[in-house]
């Protein structure tokens, strides 16, 4: 039984217009995607910007409203459909799912001390004595490699990487089972990225966490994820284990995306260029095979036990 099962999730935004502001059309940000995340697993959601991957993450945690479909959370005793809950009812499950945000600058309130930032979920869900609270904060900071003196400082006194670790500490402090990480390192310097990613991996091992890892960076995704879903235009085009995706890509779009990974070996420059051109030709020639007459992506079909591709 997976920890989280997303079933045919749709998020449509109405476009209003005219004198009476009636609904003219919809923007289909997420248009029917399904996947599941198991305990201790990292599931990567990959795609270009605007493909709906962030919307998916935000809808799972209740920041956006789902138009249709289900998000089923296994609480151990029952399956709960998170999309049907009001903000108040959702509160009960907040401690199971947490989120790490992309921008470490805007995701921490500049007016709060680190202590108050990390204590926010504790004060919402647990009634602790000040001493207990302080101990929990010190523990959470230690998990992300920050000393207890950090408690009394303000966010602007930290670097981007440190801020992101404070954000992780805040998500960890109420012991969630699933963390949605929305481009957690894309705002950081490359040198700091690896550091934060390795922290995330260590913590995952220690606490048997699951991640929904949202990213556009295939290199990072390959390093972090067990299974990957490739998103395009609000739909999944391919899903499989990291090996399936990187060694045996099937969908045109996946191939194109992979060919765009820069190769650092200058000797292979010509080869790479030829490969990219070839994929581009294939893309133009075979578009009809992978998209229906309306340009919509087909539903996923299994080609092996783990590997699914959107084909007619």
């Amino acid at each position: 039984m997976p920890l989280l099962k997303v079933d045919n999730l749709k998020v449509h935004y109405p476009i209003r217009g005219g004198f009476f502001r009636t609904i003219k059309d919809y923007v289909k940000a997420v248009d029917g995607i399904s996947f599941s995340i198991h305990e201790g697993e990292t599931y990567g959601l990959v795609g270009e910007s605007g493909c709906g991957k962030t919307t998916t993450g935000r809808t799972i945690i209740g920041l956006n409203k789902a138009t249709d479909g289900k998000v089923l959370l296994d609480t151990g005793s029952e399956l709960v459909d998170l999309t049907k809950l009001s903000r108040k009812e959702f509160r009960k499950y907040r401690s199971d799912i947490q989120m790490i945000f992309q921008d470490p600058y805007s995701s921490l309130n500049v007016r709060k001390r680190v202590r108050d930032i990390i204590a926010e979920p504790l004060r919402n869900f647990e009634s602790l004595t000040p001493e207990e609270e302080e101990q929990r904060i010190i523990d959470a900071l230690a998990k992300v490699g920050l000393g207890p003196e950090a408690m009394f400082k303000y966010p602007h006194q930290f670097s981007g990487g440190q801020r992101q670790r404070i954000g992780i500490a805040r998500a960890l402090v109420i012991n969630p089972r699933l963390i949605i990480a929305d481009e957690p390192v894309s705002a950081l310097d490359v040198s700091v990225q690896a550091q934060v990613l390795n922290f995330m991996k260590d913590i995952q091992k220690d606490y048997n966490l699951s991640y929904l890892f949202i990213s556009h960076d295939l290199g990072v995704v390959r390093h972090m994820c067990d299974r990957i879903g490739i998103m395009y235009n609000g739909r999944l085009v391919e899903e499989g284990t990291t090996e399936d995706i990187f060694e045996n890509p099937q969908h045109l779009y996946t191939k194109r995306l992979l060919s765009a990974i820069p190769n650092t070996d200058p000797k292979k420059r010509y080869e790479n260029k030829k490969l990219r051109e070839e994929i581009n030709r294939e893309y133009e020639a075979k578009t009809r095979q992978f998209f229906d007459e309306n340009g919509r992506i087909y539903d996923l079909k299994p080609i092996s036990a783990t590997h699914y591709v959107a084909m007619p």
């Binding site: 209740g62 920041l63 509160r91 907040r94 401690s95 989120m99 805007s106 995701s107 309130n109």
Partner: peptide, 22 residues
Amino acid sequence: ELDYVSASKTLGTPDWKIILFQ
């Protein structure tokens, strides 16, 4: 639109608290 408000929401802080204290 800033993420600290989204963060507070995901941390289970009620709206009136987010408005008043954040």
